[in-house]
Design a protein around this nucleic acid. Structure first.
Lengths: 341, 341
DNA sequence: TTGTAGGCGTTATCAA
DNA sequence: TTGATAACGCCTACAA
C-alpha cells in the first residue's frame, strides 16, 4: 500500500529541494558534507529505494542485460549462465534471464519484453524452432546490442561466441571409425536450421566422406536437442530388423544420447556391446552414467564469459567490431564407445 | 544509433496527437477505426516498440516478476523455474530470473535491483549464507509482493511454498533403521539457518530419538548444499579409523550425496557394501548413477507452479491471505541403500 | 552549495 | 472521436 518513498518526500521532510537530495544520494561532489549526511540518514530511515524506472527514462540507459536461453533444464546452459554472471557481477550491470523452452514464439516474446524494458543488450542462444531471421535483423538495427552464443545466426551483423562444432563432430566420428573400425554409423541429428544442428551434422558427413563410408538413410534421423527426441529417434532404429542395426550411435548432444540410452536399455540391449554410443556437450551426467559417455567437452563457462564480455564491450564502446569467436572443445573418451578407459 | 521511435514520432508523421496514437495502439474503443488502421500501419513500418519504462512510470505497474534462486546449477531449481513459467506464460507477466550463487550478498543485490526496477512481485528461495531476516521484513513492508519457495523464512508475513522436509527426512532415516537395521548413521547436514537445512536435520533427529539411537558427534557434519560440501564432509569421515566408520550416510540433498559418493569412490570403497548412502531431492542424476541413489523425490515443478500462482494472486488481489503451502514428497528406494530394487 | 525549469515517453483526465 | 494538459520520479542545464 504505502506508496514508495521518492526524492521529493525526503526533500520535504528535510526542507530542502529534491535536486539536492538527488545529488547527495548520487555522491556528487557539489553538495555540503553535512547536508549529504542528513540526506543519507533520512533516506535510510524512510526506506528509500531509487526508482530505476524513472532514472532509465531520463538516461535511456538501464544497466541491465537480458539473456535468452533455449532450455534451462539442459545443464549446459546454467553453466553458461554462471560464466556470464562472473562477468556481470563485477560490473554494474544486472542480469535478467529468460527461458524460451525451445519455442521460437516464446523467444520472440521474451526478446520483445526485454526490448520494451529497454535493456542495454541481449545475449541470445536461439531456439529449436527458430525460422525467421528477419526478426533478428530488425533487432540488430535497433539500439539494442546483441551477441549470440552457442547457437548462432551468422553473417547478419551480430557477434557470436560458439565452439568449433563441425570439427569436433568430425573428430568424434573419426574416432569411432579409425579406433574401432565401425562402419555402420547412425546419426541422431538436431534440426538443420539451428547452427549447432547443422554444423555437427556437417562434421559427421565430413568424416563419413573422408573415409568413404556410405550414408544409410534409415540410420540418419532428425530429432531434436532434448532427451525425448533422442529416445524417439532411437526407438525408430530399434524397430528395424536386427540385422539392419547400426554398430554405433552418434548424437547431436548428450541429452539426446541419454534418451537413446534409455531406449536401448528398455529393449534389454547393452552398451557398448550391442551399440557404441557417443554424445556432445559433456553434460554433468555424462561421467556418472552406468557406462560413462564418450562425448565432446564444451567449455560452457568460458562461452558465457566471452559472450558477456563481448556484449558489455559492444555496449560501452561505440565501434567495437563484430566478430565470431570460436572456442575449442576436448574429446572425452569414455566407456560408452567401447574403449577401455 | 537511431534513437527509438516514440508515440510522438508516429503522431507527427500522421499529423495527429500522441494521445490518439496511444489509444489506437492500446486498442481503446474510443478511436475511429480508420485512424486506428493508419496508426497501426505507421507503427509497424516505423518499427515502433512501446517503451515499458515510461509506461511503468505512469502506471507504477511493470507486469514483471522477479525470481531469486540460490544456485542455478542445482538441477532442482531449473525444474522449479519451469513450473513458474507454466504459470507466467499464460499470464501477462514477464519473468526475470536472478541467481544468488548461494551468497546472501548477491541475493540482496539482486533483490534490490529487482525492487529498483519496480517488479510487481518476487519469488525467493533464500541463499546459503542468509543471516539477516530484517532485510526480508523491510522488503515485505514495501509495495513488492513476496512469496518464498523451498527455502522459506517463516512467520514474517510472507507466504511460502515448500515440501514436508522434516517428515520426509524422518522417513528416509527410519527406512535405514527399520529396513536395514543400521544404527551407525552419519548425517551430512546443510546450514541450520536455512529452513530446509534445519527441517531435514530435525527429521533425522526425530527418527534417531524415536528409535533410541545415540547421536555420534563425529558423524554429524555441517556442510552445505553443493557437491563440494558433501565431498569435503565425507572426506572427514573417511579420515576416521576404519573401525569408527558409520554404516550409512544421510545427506541433506542429492548434490551433497553425489559429492560424498565421489569421495568414497576415490578411496576405493564401494556403495552399498562399505556405506549405504541416501540423498534428498531426486536430482536428474540420481537414477543414472552407477548405483542409483535412494532419495526423496520433491515435486519441483509443482512447487514452482504453486508459488507463482500464489504470487500472482497476491499481486492482483489486495487481501489474498498469507499462507504456508506444503507439498508432499515420495520416497524413492533405489540400490544405494542396499535394497534389491 | 543550492534551487528552478524543463523534459524523458506514456497515460488519465478533462475539455472540445 | 480527438486533443491539450498535467503527472509519474528523476536528471541535465542553467541560474541564483
Amino acid at each position: 500500500m504505502g506508496s514508495e518513498v521518492t526524492l521529493k518526500h525526503i526533500a520535504e521532510a528535510l526542507g530542502i529541494s529534491a535536486m539536492t537530495v538527488s545529488r547527495a544520494l548520487n555522491n556528487r561532489d557539489n553538495v555540503d558534507e553535512k547536508t549529504r549526511q542528513r540526506v543519507l540518514e533520512k533516506a535510510q530511515s524512510m526506506g528509500y529505494t531509487p526508482n530505476h524506472v524513472a532514472k532509465s527514462l531520463v538516461s535511456s540507459k538501464t544497466y541491465t542485460i537480458g539473456v535468452v536461453i533455449p532450455e534451462i533444464t539442459h545443464a549446459f546452459f546454467p553453466e553458461v549462465v554462471r560464466g556470464i554472471e562472473e562477468v556481470t557481477n563485477s560490473s554494474s550491470y544486472q542480469l535478467f534471464l529468460t527461458n524460451a523452452n525451445e519455442k521460437f514464439e516464446q523467444e520472440k516474446k521474451a526478446i520483445k519484453a526485454l526490448r520494451s524494458k529497454r535493456v542495454d543488450g541481449i545475449l541470445i542462444s536461439s531456439s529449436l524452432t527458430v525460422e525467421d531471421y528477419s526478426f533478428y535483423k530488425q533487432l540488430i538495427q535497433s539500439d539494442t546490442e546483441i551477441v549470440f552464443f552457442d547457437r548462432c545466426v551468422e553473417n547478419i551483423g551480430a557477434s557470436c561466441v560458439s565452439v568449433n562444432d563441425k570439427i569436433s563432430a568430425r573428430q568424434i566420428t573419426e574416432h569411432l571409425i579409425t579406433e574401432h573400425g565401425f562402419t555402420k554409423l547412425a546419426y541422431l541429428s538436431g534440426p538443420q536450421h539451428v547452427s549447432v544442428g547443422r554444423e555437427r551434422y556437417q562434421g559427421f558427413l565430413d568424416a563419413m566422406n573422408k573415409h568413404d563410408i556410405p550414408l544409410v538413410d534409415k540410420w540418419i534421423i532428425e530429432g531434436g536437442f532434448q532427451e525425448k527426441a533422442g529416445y524417439k529417434a532411437m526407438k525408430q532404429i530399434l524397430d528395424l530388423p536386427r540385422d539392419e542395426f547400426p554398430e554405433a550411435i552418434i548424437n547431436v548432444n548428450d541429452p539426446s544420447a541419454i534418451g537413446a540410452i534409455q531406449a536401448i536399455n528398455e529393449e534389454g540391449l547393452s552398451i557398448p556391446d550391442d551399440f557404441a554410443i557417443v554424445g556432445f556437450t559433456d553434460d554433468i551426467r555424462a561421467n556418472l552414467l552406468k557406462v560413462p559417455l564418450t562425448t565432446v567437452h564444451q567449455p560452457a563457462y568460458e562461452v558465457g564469459k566471452r559472450a558477456a564480455r563481448k556484449l558489455l564491450d559492444s555496449i560501452e564502446n561505440e565501434d567495437e567490431p563484430t566478430e565470431n569467436i570460436e572456442l575449442l572443445t576436448t574429446l572425452k573418451i569414455r566407456a560408452s564407445c567401447g574403449c577401455n578407459s
